[in-house]
Structures are given as structure tokens and as C-alpha cells.
Design a protein around this nucleic acid. Structure first.
Lengths: 156, 156
DNA sequence: TAGGACGTTGGAGTGCGCTCCAGGCAAGCG
DNA sequence: CGCTTGCCTGGAGCGCACTCCAACGTCCTA
């Protein structure tokens, strides 16, 4: 709680803002993917992909002549958006609502935009919260760093 | 996806980074709070407060002569930290682990600091993710804004 | 033609973070 | 004295977002 705050002399290498492992890139020139390919590309499980379809978060997926799902690039685009929305903490039910608006056609542009703007506000609030939390964490980290340093001096 | 991106001419008033409703301030000069007072101060339910204690997220709370909980300012401080950690998405089990380290005394300074630094990394990653998401949302919002404007022109 | 990998379905199960319930005790009030 | 209000307990229940199961079909390769 004391200490010349804000210095963070002991910042670690994790500071670089790496945002997780990079997903395998989408091979181009292709427009029909099996469910396991999509699972690999998105990081979602095949279970989850089927579940998304059942609850209406994805519109009906194309099928092969034997009834197996064949995802298109447009489906992958949609999954990218869903992934982003999921990161915001938006409940799946709300994403389903958005999906329904998209399916309902262009008369819903206004509603879609309103939903996205409300989500945008959520994200901004969330970022602010996280920054506040970061400040608290830095204080605590410095505090413990100081305590350790003092203890080391005692020992020396 | 097209449009002169990045302009956001139609930003709304929700842009101000208000981070939720302000909690009622802690009355000073007081150091014994009933569970419902703490619930009001923290926004947690009394159920949740008792549950936190049961799972070891809070060390044993003082009791009145009739066995009712009496929280101290130190308890409220701890709940503030817990609230921050919760905002980071840290699982309750990890917070319990941190609480155990605190109870274990000063020999755990290093571990506590390591845990906080790892959490700090999580928060940085999370902020990056949210900023990426924000960019996508802004693109979409502008896109729908443009579509609506075009449609209005058609009507006019 | 056999084997194994991969896909299908409806429905049940899981883990997390609460949330609520029933039954009971203690204090304050008219 | 009864009534209300607030708190206590252990344990059951809930909503969300998956996650898995059993039983079966299909594709590919050898």
C-alpha cells in the first residue's frame, strides 16, 4: 500500500500483450469443411458446434449427400463473430437473439445495431473495470515485492 | 466491412466509461457490520457471504454473543479484493488458494506475488482481447449505420 | 470385406457459482 | 404474550454453457 507506486521495476516478460495461441489459419480456396476441421479452426469442440446449431446460434448447416455437416467460409465468419461476442461475456441467449435478427432480414438493421452498441458499452465498461483491477494488482504486487526485499535485507 | 472505417460519427452517450452504479460508501468509525449491512455494501447476497465463508474464501468471521456474524473493516477490505479478482474471471477455487496462502503467513509472500502476477498477465490478455472485439464491433456498427443511411436515401 | 476413423442423433450429465429452502433461534415491540 | 424481523444451519436446487453417452451409419484403406 505504501511504496513509490506506479514504478513496477519488476515487470515480467508476460507483459507482452500476447492474446493466446494463434489459431491455425483458414486454408483458402476451400469452402466446405467437416465438423472436425471447423473444430480445429475455431477451437470449439464438435459437440459445441452441433449444440450451437441446435439452439439456433447457427442457421442450418449444409449437408453432404450422406448427411454430414459441411461448413462454408461464411459459417466460419459467423463463428468468428460469435467468438468475439463470447469474449465480451454476452450470454448465448443474446447471441441467439442476434442470429434471429440476422435471419429475419434487413428490416432488423436498427435492432442489430442497437444490440451491438449496447454490447460495445458493456465492453468499454469491462475494460475500465479491468484497468481498475490492474491498478489494485500492481499495488499488491509492489507491496509483496517490497516485503520480500525487506525480508532479504533482514537475512543478509 | 467497407466504409471509411474508424470514424464512428454516431457514437452514443454510453461512451462515457461509467463503471456501474456506485456502491454505498462504508460509514466510518464503525467496525462491526451485520451480514445484511455487508450485503448492501458489497452487492453480494447474504447467501453468498455465508457460502464464501464455508468454502474458505473468508477466514472465520467474528460472532456476536448470540452467534450472528459481525464483519470488520478488514473483512470488507478483503471482500473488495475478492470483488476485483472476481472481475478478472479468476475461478473461486484460485481465490480460495490465495486466501489459504494469506492464512499461512508471511512465508508465502513469494507464492502470493506469483499468483497475482499471473493474474495480472491474464488481465492484460483479457484487455487486449476486448480491444480487438471492440474494433470488430465498431466495424459492424458503422456497417449497419451506413446501410440504414443508404436505405433512408432510397426512401427519400 | 474387414477394420478403424469419423460422423449422426436425442438426451443425460457435469462443473461452476451461486441461490434457495426448511426448520429453528434470538431480539424488539405493542 | 404473540408477532415480526433478522439471522442461523445443512443441504438441495438452479441456470448456464457446455460435455459426454450409447447406438448407430458411413467413408476410406488394405
Amino acid at each position: 500500500m505504501q511504496t513509490a507506486a506506479g514504478t513496477r521495476p519488476n515487470a515480467t516478460r508476460t507483459d507482452l500483450c500476447s492474446a493466446g495461441p494463434p489459431r491455425p489459419p483458414r486454408p483458402d480456396g476451400q469452402d466446405r469443411y467437416t465438423i472436425s476441421e471447423v473444430a480445429a479452426l475455431t477451437g470449439l469442440s464438435a459437440h459445441t458446434l452441433r449444440w450451437y446449431e441446435r439452439i439456433g446460434l447457427m442457421s442450418h448447416i449444409d449437408r453432404s449427400h450422406t448427411g454430414q455437416r459441411r461448413y462454408t467460409n461464411a459459417d466460419l465468419d459467423w463463428l468468428d463473430l460469435v467468438g468475439k461476442l463470447r469474449l465480451t461475456g454476452m450470454p448465448v441467449a443474446d447471441m441467439v437473439r442476434y442470429a434471429e435478427l440476422v435471419r429475419a432480414g434487413e428490416s432488423t438493421y436498427g435492432q442489430r445495431r442497437a444490440l451491438l452498441e449496447s454490447t460495445r458499452g458493456d465492453v468499454l465498461r469491462r475494460i475500465t473495470e479491468l484497468r481498475d483491477t490492474l491498478a489494485v494488482l500492481d499495488l499488491k504486487i509492489d507491496f509483496y515485492g517490497d516485503l520480500e526485499r525487506v525480508r532479504d535485507q533482514e537475512v543478509t
